[in-house]
Amino acid sequence: MRDRNRRLVVDELRRAGLVSRAELARRTGLSRSTVSTLVADLQAQGLVAEREVDGAGPQGGRPPVLLSLERAAGVALGIDFGKRHVRVIVSDLAHTVLADLERPMETEQSAQEGFDAAARLSMQALREAGVEQTDIIGAGMGVPGPIDVASGEVGSSAILPGWVGVRPEQDVSRQLGIPVKAENDANLGALAELTWGAGRGTADFVYIKVSSGIGGGLVLNGQLYTGSGGIAGELGHSMVDEHGPVCRCGNRGCLETVASTRQILELLRPARGSDLTIEEVIAHAREGDRASRRVIGDAGRAIGVVVAQVCNVLNPAKVIVGGDLSAAGDVLLDPLRDEVTRHAVPAAGGNVEIVPGVLGRRAEVLGAAALVLRDVDAFALHPPRDVQQQAG
């Protein structure tokens, strides 16, 4: 019971940033005496600090004393691997981003070369944030492919073929000397939107990442749902055309083969040039270019057919669309909404809110940090240095 109450207090401090003892008791449902005892323990361990805010308190009295998680309590590291980049952030336990760095990565690089690049970038980010490696309580890591729950291996449908069968948690944990948790990048996008973005306060939603691949993350009853084997949310491999092209997963006619940014570029490059980028396609669409609007709209319609089936099964309150193509806004979302309305049962399709994500290209790396931040109470039982030494 004490550990549960501690979790409630730490979680609320993380969400609120600054909060009084009385407000903490109200939000957690604990008695003031219980909150005071738990806060005192956390202060003794250097995990919580008192801060006076500017201005007088009620009836002109002393300025209120508020509580916050202490920077000295440690920091979380978020690492995101994309098809052509690696990105690292450092966040304190109050969800303040202290450093955010990115570097390009060659598609042909091996997994080990990617891990080496991430380690170097992590050290640079720590220096920029002004914290030590021993301050890290853990790292979350996003990988562009499913992670098998039992083995920890990257699955066969990964965007980066050279990563299939790799166990990123073990390799990166060994390299950095800290605990590491790896997760599919679309799941991390969902977790980031739940923690910071368009999913805040929404218990049930579906996140769709539309980039060079298409992935999905499911949040059910306020928790990330990955299924028994970690594969839940692979919407990009839903079949939309049984006679369609062969997908990288080995099946035919997957959603990814008709609606990914890779497919959009393949359709437009013969007429627009081999160096055309998806950012240029989106810009052209916003300027009214018919071809760009057509291919993006077709992608939205294909995604909408799959989303309609998901709505029938899960009945989410929201569908949040992220990834590179989400920058197209209503050029993508309006056709998607039309297909959901058309194909989903009215009670599901008529009530679901379909919105763009608000975190853009930072979604996955923020979600990687959130893997650690949402389990911060597990680390709060030990100072960060102890965690570091145990991991090493």
Rank of each mutant, 00 (worst) to 15 (best):
L13R: 10
V35L: 03
S36Q: 14
V39E: 10
D41N: 12
D41T: 10
Q43V: 05
V53Q: 15
G57Q: 09
G60H: 13
P63I: 06
A73I: 06
G78E: 09
R84S: 14
V97R: 03
V97I: 14
D100Y: 04
L101V: 10
M105A: 14
M105E: 11
T107C: 02
E108N: 10
E108W: 03
Q109Y: 12
S110C: 11
G130N: 10
Q133N: 03
I137K: 01
G138K: 00
M141T: 13
G142V: 09
P144F: 01
L160Q: 14
P161R: 09
W163D: 07
G165Q: 15
Q170N: 15
D171Q: 14
V172Y: 07
Q175F: 05
E183T: 09
R200W: 04
A203I: 03
V206E: 02
Y207T: 01
Y207P: 06
G217S: 12
G217W: 05
A232W: 09
G236Q: 03
H237Q: 08
R248V: 09
C254N: 06
R262C: 03
P270W: 08
A271I: 00
R272V: 00
T277Y: 04
E280Q: 10
I282G: 07
D289T: 08
R294F: 09
V295L: 00
G300T: 04
G304C: 08
Q309D: 15
V313T: 14
L314F: 14
G329E: 03
G349C: 09
N351P: 06
I354D: 06
V376C: 11
Q389T: 13
A391N: 07
